[in-house]
């Protein structure tokens, strides 16, 4: 079963982290990637640039209208994700708990089943 482990980030929470905590997160992700690659559960992972770098495109009257900044004003934004293929929802939750973000107060990791896939998976 495929799951998307969604890391929603809150820029205010991230800004308040100490250097040491930041390093721990970086190393934690490295270790997590290593774990799920070895177990054959990793499909791909992507980390996204800061929400301020985003643009929203709307087509109105056949014309694209582009606005800078995120889609909605919110506290949390999509920061990145892991796409995994594992045995069960229980295993997906177990893996999500290994992601360093899950341990940070104010953050969490969302686990959502995948319903349809297409395109090449070789990243």
């Amino acid at each position: 079963m495929k799951f998307l482990l969604i890391m929603n980030v809150n820029p205010a929470v991230l800004d308040a982290l100490t250097e040491e905590e930041r390093n721990e997160i970086g190393e934690g992700h490295g270790a997590f990637i290593d774990t799920i690659k070895k177990s054959g559960e990793m499909i791909t992972t992507q980390a996204l640039a800061d929400p301020s770098q985003t643009a929203v495109v709307r087509v109105r009257g056949g014309q694209p209208v582009v606005t800078d900044g995120p889609f909605v004003e919110a506290k949390e934004y999509l920061g990145g994700f892991y796409l995994i293929d594992c045995e069960s929802k229980e295993r997906a939750i177990e893996l999500a708990a290994l992601i360093p973000d899950a341990k940070i107060e104010g953050l969490g990791v969302e686990v959502r089943p995948v319903m349809f896939s297409d395109g090449t998976l070789e990243a």
Binding site: K38, I43, D85, A123
Partner: peptide, 11 residues
Amino acid sequence: FLVPEATMAGR
């Protein structure tokens, strides 16, 4: 199984 070859190789 609709997964990348690297994933299956690891498994």
